[in-house]
């Protein structure tokens, strides 16, 4: 027996707005550049300057770019770095460090680097961000494959809908797969960071709904987040598929 899930109690889901946004990719190191379509000729590295240099060592591109995008999002929302909950999401996680460690297992005595290991967990970016930001609040790290943004967005909406939080930073992205496993996926490094909050009536917003939804192929973990930003910027009524079983109903400012 299965029910047609129409999003029971959907009225309890909050109408949300994006209060701040950040972006990072190797040739596009902020959201302004992303929307302007401008690219650096050469790839630059995320500087991750809010993290002390001794802690930045042995961190991955994923962690550094996630922290840079998070910092940009907070700044654009005019929020101090300790004033929001944090939801970090990535499908592949710290894959560069994971592969580095596998190589170390086959070298010398097979020991792996403690500096790399402590930065190998899925919540490395969230942990380092919380330390740099002195943010002692809620922080999580989520994975759900191609539906990772959907899961992160849902958890963020639930945090606001239950009244636990007023502002949630939602950071979503992945770094490119390292050799030799790059043969299994060709995505590039890219991260989007959004500050989510309850929408005012005079701004465009979205409400999440569960239930069956037609899904386009998700080519990058961050892609549905970019689609959501674009749809909100357009501000027209629309239903946007976010991931398996989750869509966002966009509503314009009233």
């Amino acid at each position: 027996m299965t029910n047609e899930n129409t999003g029971a109690n959907a009225s309890a889901m909050p109408r949300l707005a994006i209060a701040g946004r950040g972006y990072w990719a190797p040739q596009v190191p902020n959201f302004e550049a992303y929307f302007a379509g401008t690219r650096h000729e050469e790839a630059v590295k995320p500087n991750c300057s809010i993290v002390a240099s001794r802690m930045r060592r042995a961190t991955s591109t994923l962690t550094r770019m996630s922290i840079d995008a998070a910092t940009e999002a907070a700044k654009s929302a005019d929020l101090a770095l300790d004033q929001f909950a944090c939801v970090f999401g990535s499908a592949h996680g710290e894959i560069q460090i994971a592969v580095d460690q596998m190589e170390m297992m086959h070298e010398g005595e097979g020991q792996i680097s403690p500096a790399r290991f402590k930065n190998s967990v899925h919540n490395t970016a969230g942990g380092l961000f919380s330390i740099a930001a002195k943010n002692r609040g809620f922080s999580t790290a989520i994975a759900a494959g191609p539906d990772t943004f959907a899961a992160c967005l849902l958890e963020s909406a639930l945090l606001i809908g239950t009244g636990e939080e007023t502002h949630v930073l939602c950071v979503i992205g992945d770094e490119a797969l390292p050799a030799p496993i790059d043969r299994f996926g060709s995505h590039t490094s890219q991260v989007v960071a959004l500050i989510l909050a309850s929408a005012r009536e005079d701004q465009p917003g979205f409400t999440l709904r569960t239930g069956a939804t037609a899904l386009p192929e998700i080519l990058h973990t961050a892609e549905p987040a970019l689609r959501l930003v674009r749809a909100l910027d357009e501000g027209a009524e629309a239903t946007l598929p976010i991931g398996r079983g989750l869509s966002a109903t966009i509503s314009p400012a009233s």
Partner: peptide, 11 residues
């Protein structure tokens, strides 16, 4: 089971 599903991975 077909409802929402995800993994929390905070070590």
């Amino acid at each position: 089971v077909t409802g929402p599903r995800w993994v929390v991975s905070t070590a």
